[in-house]
Design a protein around this nucleic acid. Structure first.
Lengths: 291, 291
DNA sequence: GGCACTAGTTGACTTTAGTCAACTAAATTA
DNA sequence: TAATTTAGTTGACTAAAGTCAACTAGTGCC
């Protein structure tokens, strides 16, 4: 009754019931739940049918039929993927977008109820949900390019800055401009900004910008606390290094702080070596790597 | 995408899928999921049909039919409640107990997979699950009598002791015997031990034992960290006070420590007043209340 | 060009879940 | 004691979800 597994199963029971209740908010629009769920996953910009199937874990035939129903309702349009004539892409029609919005608001309202219920412990609840979702999705983290001014990028940067602020009392918010100045340097062809996604939550980032001829600097390596301990930082570093290589850089540098022991250990174990200072406060350690 | 509600919905999506996968482990025994779920909830000692319906949120007709099917399979026996001839109690037959065990092991194995997946962050994962389940169940916390040597009581006491140990370095494990010595003093007719249950997880306790003629002492008030901030401590105190009143005590005492500021504030706001010391270290504040 | 493979569609079908109303029988209330 | 309420049963029904296999059409590789 008190062991881990019993507690997981209690969680299971409770969540099955509550989440079921959440989903029933999708009812009352004259459409079965599965159709509503499909519609909710279709993005206005288009979603691969294979991705829908994958995310909802549905049979090919079943999803095909659900999409057909949404199509005859005039909510969804199906197009053939231009790069592969077998694949299909589902798009929202204007009517579909309106309906999508309605579902979105229904879900929003129900979710709000859950939070109202949580009272003063909202933040703890969200952190717990993030942790669980991130653990369950840990094999499905995807690293993708992003624009440094994208809202997701700003979310990552501000989370990164929070950590710095908490770590060192001498760092002040004014030292941490948001969005990044010179953001064009973090965009191809000059640099790069990578975000690690878990489902549609950004849980990590890293960036690259040119420093000297042939040399780029790696900056803003951040991993969400709920996602630590899974080697994501290393994955991000390797991704940005290989990106730098592809862009023709022959060396990389970074600055850091010895308080961030885990990060320093990671750099060292991936072949980074200490180098001469090239920046000032708050950094107190500088590293470089040949590509 | 980054706000609380989006994160709840991500959690929702992930958990729906993973929990669904957990439940499908109940499949493959030639029985629909709903039957398996009903069987899993039936205790060998018997479970009220109304409770099953309540916990699974099923229609009367549907549950009746599911139970009938389990009965004709020889897994379940239905008896009439001796105290109310309308109510029925579901019991497991020996065959039903065997089948129940198999489901239990299936669920156990699947749950284990989830934990294996979590790797080194098991404890964080469990804490997160407890928090979510407790928040969602907060309106359904029940306070019931328990035996002070019951495993659930020991769980509460050991959690309580952990807190004391963490709080004050001068307290040593040897000062905290488990099970309680003189446990018969915490049992009716001399005293009482109350546990607060959330589903089947004990999340709080409080106890009462006779101190002087007409006076009892309240001890071991504990609330699980995931369940704080919901007034559970006050509910427990009021429950134990009214129990003391029913038992004929005319006054109560307790000892505490000023480091436990929230507890002291709670006592004061419920009519407790400071009184002369009647115990020694580690207590440094003593309170009393007339009933 | 031919062959194996993949993505998706469609028809025919079954199972599961759930609803609704009429009913029995025990308990409670007036 | 009669009327009302409550707990559960049963039959008739519908909707939703899912399965299976045959099919079309595009892709990739020898």
């Amino acid at each position: 009754m008190l062991d881990a597994i019993a507690r997981l199963r209690r969680f299971n029971r409770v969540v099955t019931r509550e989440i079921g209740a959440l989903d029933t908010s999708y009812l009352g629009r004259g459409r079965p739940l599965s159709s509503a769920r499909v519609l909710q996953l279709v993005k206005a910009s288009g979603t691969d049918v294979a991705e829908l199937r994958n995310r909802l874990d549905l049979d090919t035939g079943l999803l095909s039929r659900l999409l057909r129903a949404l199509e005859t309702e005039g909510l969804v349009r199906l197009e053939t993927d231009p790069t592969d004539g077998r694949r299909r892409i589902a798009l929202l029609t204007p009517a579909g977008q309106a309906e999508w919005q309605i579902y979105d608001q229904l879900g929003h309202a129900k979710a709000q109820q859950v939070f109202d219920h949580a009272g003063p412990r909202q933040d703890a609840l969200i952190a717990a949900m993030d942790l669980i979702a991130t653990v369950m999705l840990q094999d499905q983290v995807e690293i993708r390019d992003a624009d440094p001014n994208d809202p997701a990028a700003l979310h990552c940067l501000s989370a990164y800055f929070q950590i710095l602020l908490a770590m060192n009392a001498a760092i002040t918010p004014s030292m941490l401009p948001l969005p990044l100045p010179d953001s064009e340097k973090y965009r191809p062809p000059q640099g790069a900004f990578l975000i690690a996604w878990s489902d549609d939550l950004p849980i990590g980032c890293v960036s690259l910008h040119p420093l000297e001829p042939g040399i780029a600097e790696v900056k803003r390596l951040w991993v969400d606390p709920t996602a630590r301990g899974q080697g994501l930082a290393r994955r991000l570093m390797r991704a940005i290094e290989s990106r730098a290589r592809d862009m023709g850089f022959i060396g990389l540098k970074l600055d850091s702080h010895t308080d961030l022991a885990a990060a320093i250990a990671l750099y060292r174990s991936d072949g980074w070596l200490e180098t001469a200072p090239y920046t000032g406060f708050p950094a107190n350690i500088w590293m470089a790597k040949r590509l």
